[in-house]
């Protein structure tokens, strides 16, 4: 259970509380948890608020000081504001920022290390590492000679845009180059938190289930590229690559997919090619906006 952001699938049982859905007259589905069992009829004729047993309805003037306040504010607005700042900073410096997401152990760090070693010499690059507790991953990255900053999220199961913004202030920015952000191993919450990246890259290893895209659709929908990792192990497994790809495309018909192995180096050229194309289109967009601004 994710007690931090409340966006993880709940193993939590709500003792004594019944949760039920029912459709209202406006076609929406109303979901309540009731601390005590009681009957009520739906739809609620007085708008969205269902006041529950024993409460005076707010719109009955004079009976109660209570009133309904319309808010209509996006819960992620604050994070999105920080993300927009990060995105602006990265764009201004011509940096392609990528948010790498996967379950724990899919091979994000191993793949990053291999990628950093294979990138053309003198490519400006930096890494932000997210992990709940340890600094191991940042050390693995620094061993390649690449600057890295570790963010420990403690109990938090995802990076947020504010954390990344703080890391960006302390990092020597790789002008005109690449910024890799390795997110906390978790396919649920990171889908909802924009960090200001140009794209999310989701990593799925062939030691996981082919149905992962179906179980974590939000993440596969949010990603632009899927790296199917650990393909060196395929001869030893009965993982169905075609099925995994079919499932991923079912969730996100526009997802690009590259088979790779961080161990054998299979598919690395395709991945480097994808990176080069993304960098080129970023530069092209930048030039266009410079011309437009002129």
């Amino acid at each position: 259970m994710c007690t931090t952001c409340g966006c993880n699938a709940g193993e939590v049982k709500l003792d004594g509380q019944t949760v039920h859905d029912h459709a209202g007259s406006d076609g929406r589905v109303y979901r309540h948890a009731h601390a005590d069992a009681h009957d009520h009829s739906h739809p609620h004729p007085h708008g969205l608020l269902h006041l529950g047993r024993g409460e005076t309805h707010a719109h009955a003037p004079g009976l109660s000081p209570a009133r309904v306040v319309r808010i209509e504010r996006d819960i992620l607005a604050r994070n999105n504001g920080h993300a927009a700042e990060n995105r602006g900073l990265l764009q201004a410096r011509g940096i392609l920022g990528l948010n790498l997401v996967s379950s724990p152990g899919s091979g994000k760090t191993t793949l990053l290390v291999r990628t950093l070693r294979a990138l053309p010499a003198h490519t400006p690059v930096a890494v932000i590492e997210g992990d709940q507790q340890t600094a191991n991953d940042a050390e693995r990255i620094r061993a390649t000679g690449t600057p890295a900053i570790q963010i420990n999220t403690g109990k938090g199961c995802h990076l947020d845009a504010q954390m990344v913004g703080q890391a960006l202030q302390r990092l020597v920015l790789p002008e005109g180059g690449l910024l890799f952000i390795e997110n906390v191993g978790n396919l649920v919450c990171p889908a909802a938190f924009d960090l200001g990246e140009a794209a999310k890259v989701v990593i799925l290893s062939v030691t996981e289930g082919e149905d992962k895209p179906l179980k974590y659709p939000d993440m596969f929908r949010a990603a632009r590229l899927l790296l199917l990792n650990k393909c060196d192990l395929l001869p030893h497994l009965d993982f169905d690559v075609a099925l995994a790809i079919e499932n991923a495309l079912r969730i996100n018909p526009e997802l690009a997919i590259i088979r790779v192995s961080a161990v054998s180096g299979e598919g690395l050229d395709d991945w480097l090619g994808w990176l080069a194309r993304e960098r080129a289109s970023l530069t092209a967009r930048q030039n266009t906006s410079v011309i437009e601004a002129a």
């Binding site: 939590v12 709500l14 949760v19 409460e55 649920v188």
Partner: peptide, 21 residues
């Protein structure tokens, strides 16, 4: 007294987990 959230049917939010938090 009461907070009404609008949560998309396809949003990455588990209502039970939100309630807990």
């Amino acid at each position: 007294r009461t907070v009404v959230l609008e949560i998309g049917q396809l949003a990455a939010v588990e209502p039970e987990a939100m309630r807990f938090c």
